[in-house]
Amino acid sequence: MVKRLLSALEYPQCDVNVNDEATFRKIVAWLELNKINKADSNVANGLKNVTSNDWPNHFQKYKEALGVPNLQSHQEQLQWLLGYAVQIETHNNREVYIKHAVENLKATNVPTVVTENPLDKLDFHSKEFAEGITKLAQLLNITPHPDPLVTLKAVAKLVTTRLSPQAQANPSEVIIKGTPFPFQEADLGFDLNDPVLNQAAKVLRILYIHDLRDLQTKANELIVAVQNITANPKTDTKLGKVGK
């Protein structure tokens, strides 16, 4: 860990033995001079003089000034100082690091392409378009709507849900199973005094129920996903007691 931190701080020689007193002193002096810069000149000079007998006293003062906790080994003390230095270094270079943050990288690396939809160039009102769509709808067994654009929407929906490669490979996944329900006889809940409007309202009801079912299924899937992490059902028959 110490080595990695040293290399991160660009210490000239990373492969060091920190238990060696001379090396330890050298590193501390280097850190203060190049990275931390918090000691007053007296202490800083004392630390620079790595061979002096007075060094430990200066180091003690230095530790007090920085607020180093009471740590025993050189290893631990060095680790703390390195961490402190890294913190200062990161803070100084904040702008640089933010530029490399994941979110920002994503944003900058993807070239912004103005998507061009070939359909935009079509003339939706042309006779050819209308005829083409009607033919497509017939081919797919869709009742054409007077507005070819609406028909196109229906075609698109069918193609994306039923004719996608996934759906083709595994048709049972998309074909809705279940027992048919005579919804024509079901109670609508209100009467619009017009059989055609009532019929339309019933269809809207069914579409709404379809969407609601989809939403509920997704909610259930979400619950199951969470359960995979949290569930831990337990029983203990020893706790059981039949009453009187």
Partner: peptide, 9 residues
């Protein structure tokens, strides 16, 4: 029953 205890801890 009255005074029964469950087996789920």
């Amino acid at each position: 029953g009255v005074g029964s205890k469950g087996i789920i801890p």
